[in-house]
Design a protein around this nucleic acid. Structure first.
Lengths: 237, 237
DNA sequence: TATCAACTCCCCCAAAATAGCGAGGGCAGT
DNA sequence: ACTGCCCTCGCTATTTTGGGGGAGTTGATA
């Protein structure tokens, strides 16, 4: 007999639309016997998509309160490579705690395990399994299912991207080497004069690079360009 | 009886140094019965680390020729989310084909399957299984082992990072909610006037936030502060 | 050979950001 | 009650950026 997860993955393999992802997360919730399973995707351009078993009220609340910018799970996973237990995250800030109490009120469990997944242009997805139980129970659960959750996370992400229409808008126009140099040094806090000096070019030439990078990145100003370049992984600071 | 991969993963779990990674890739090669298994890591600052079963001659050649900038596997995976069969890559450019013929001469197989893995600050790792066989055989192989390879790739990466010295995450001093708002909107490309308007505060108050954020982040100017805030995952753009 | 992308340099001027002084009220922890 | 942090507001002068022109050299690719 085939394990349940295998079956879910195979069904997902056949999926033809985002609605199947919703079916999959629900099936996964039942399989893992947890309160919630959620897939959440954020592109560098700000678009996002989520599907999961949280109540519509919580989803709406999340949107309204712009919890995306507060949520310690998002912020914490954003800095990590690897799957993380929610207990490992930083819940000490005030914003985090108000978020936490609010979440609990809306039926979000106290335990969670989230898998961050990153794409080539700063796309960022999060696959979360959430439950309400004590630490020991959760420890046993994660120990047992961690590996399958990681796999499932990647499959969900793969499928979500296949169906996502916003996949082609700007096919990651790369920056030229000089543009990368310029934007990188600017991002490190130097002024145009300093950067021009460091690169041994005239300040005007430097400006041309910054402008062309800004154009390629669809940025309104230098700061915006730096933000986008970092988000998309085009430069490293 | 435990599957071989499980055993390898468990051994890797106990690993205490990079040498265990080398042992693991060799064990994986034997398990999968393929010609090569390679793990390769590139940081944004240009450092890189690799371990695998390619011949030392090929590794040296790769370095000397700076194939990192030519290798269609690297270039292709850099733009993708998901594991990819080498056949899916673009081998049409002249540089790619010279690379290919050169690789074959050094014992690299014609078939390959690579898993890209990305980190929060532009870190990029590649886990590759390589073999010499016909398309049908390879098709069957990837079909059978794809999932376990993905898992193994992530475990190898996790371990590699644990042993990597340059991994001290700065104790990011958190920003206040208003500072987060301010820096976020600035990072989105708005001018101070626009942001002040959006937050319904005077432009001067906004400036205070930006300055205090800049101070907390140890940034020389606004752009630098935005760059740091994004790199440290304090804001989401 | 033609074309295109990248790289380099120059002018001027308006707009925006930064630096330097301030000030006061609210809220939480000690 | 005190201390520290967060939020809010004002002014002036200087520095830095941004937008508008234009022009010439490479090197790779078609």
């Amino acid at each position: 007999m085939k394990p349940r997860v295998e079956q879910i993955l195979e069904d997902l393999e056949q999926a033809t639309g985002l609605e199947h992802l919703q079916i999959a997360v629900e099936a996964l919730r039942d399989h893992y016997r947890v309160d919630h399973v959620v897939y959440h995707w954020v592109s560098s351009s700000g678009e996002q998509y989520g599907c999961g078993t949280y109540s519509p009220e919580w989803a709406q609340r999340y949107q309204e309160q712009e919890y995306l910018r507060t949520d310690p799970v998002i912020l914490g996973c954003f800095q990590r490579f690897h799957p993380v237990d929610w207990k490992m995250l930083d819940w000490t800030s005030r914003a985090a705690r108000t978020f936490q109490t609010d979440a609990l009120k809306y039926g979000v469990g106290n335990q969670g395990f989230s898998v961050p997944i990153r794409g080539p242009n700063g796309q960022f997805a999060l696959f979360t399994v959430n439950h309400n139980c004590d630490d020991a129970t959760w420890e046993r659960f994660t120990e047992m299912h961690r590996r399958s959750i990681i796999l499932v996370a990647h499959f969900c992400n793969q499928k979500a991207l296949e169906f996502e229409p916003g996949r082609k808008p700007e096919p990651a126009q790369p920056l030229s080497p000089r543009e990368v140099d310029a934007i990188t040094l600017i991002a490190m806090g130097h002024s145009r004069a300093q950067v021009a000096d460091a690169l041994s070019i005239s300040e005007h030439t430097l400006r041309v690079y910054i402008e062309s990078a800004r154009f390629k990145l669809g940025a309104a100003n230098t700061t915006h360009a730096v933000a986008r370049a970092i988000s998309r992984g085009l430069i490293v600071v």
